[in-house]
């Protein structure tokens, strides 16, 4: 049996879960495997053992959590795939985006600010749902781009999605603020 050590696994989260290295993922399988592996490595399963076992368990559990977080989230998963493929997304330096996209986003942002200032929870909820739907469609495009190996396009979509994700978080914060 080949053993994989932490270092090897650290290089590829997909192989940790025995999943193919691609954007489309069997979420139920990931969930099940995550729980199965945690059930073996979690510190609670080693609490009464030696210090070296406990330390090891903590490192493993931490690593498995990181791998799971990365693969579970489609945007993180895509960024990770691009990283594995050696493609730099250039988040800081490449801020160019299609004009139509930017205009739509700015309009959306204005609506969010308006709804927030008016204390309109329902309007924020509607905007949240609308944006989520848009994001969902973008993710489908992203999956196709990654499957086809169109890394440049995938990188551009990732940048757009990060932009949208930030707006999603802002709506979320606005809702929390109004509810709090």
């Amino acid at each position: 049996m080949t053993l994989f050590d932490l270092e090897t696994v650290r290089q590829d989260f997909f192989s940790l879960f025995g999943l193919p290295r691609q954007q489309g993922i069997d979420a139920d399988r990931l969930d099940a495997l995550y729980r199965e592996i945690q059930a073996r490595v979690h510190p609670d399963k080693h609490a009464h053992l030696s210090d070296s076992d406990k330390r090891m368990a903590m490192q493993w559990a931490t690593h498995v959590n990181e791998a799971y977080e990365t693969l579970k989230d489609p945007l993180k998963r895509a960024r990770y795939l691009l990283h594995l493929a050696g493609h730099d997304v250039r988040l800081e330096t490449n801020t160019a985006m299609p004009t139509a996209f930017l205009v739509a986003q700015m309009e959306l942002r204005e609506s969010v600010v308006e709804a927030k200032d008016a204390g309109d929870v329902d309007a924020l909820d509607t905007l949240l749902r609308r944006l989520k739907n848009e994001v969902k469609a973008e993710f489908d495009n992203l999956r196709v781009a990654l499957d086809e190996g169109n890394l440049e396009h995938a990188g551009a979509l990732v940048r757009q999605l990060m932009f949208q994700e930030k707006l999603l978080n802002e709506i979320d914060d606005a809702l929390a603020c109004l509810e709090g």
């Binding site: 049996m1 053993l3 994989f4 399988r29 495997l33």
Partner: peptide, 12 residues
């Protein structure tokens, strides 16, 4: 620990 994780995958 490695062996145990390996077995989790094999079991699945």
């Amino acid at each position: 620990m490695n062996q145990s994780v390996q077995r989790a995958l094999a079991g699945k």
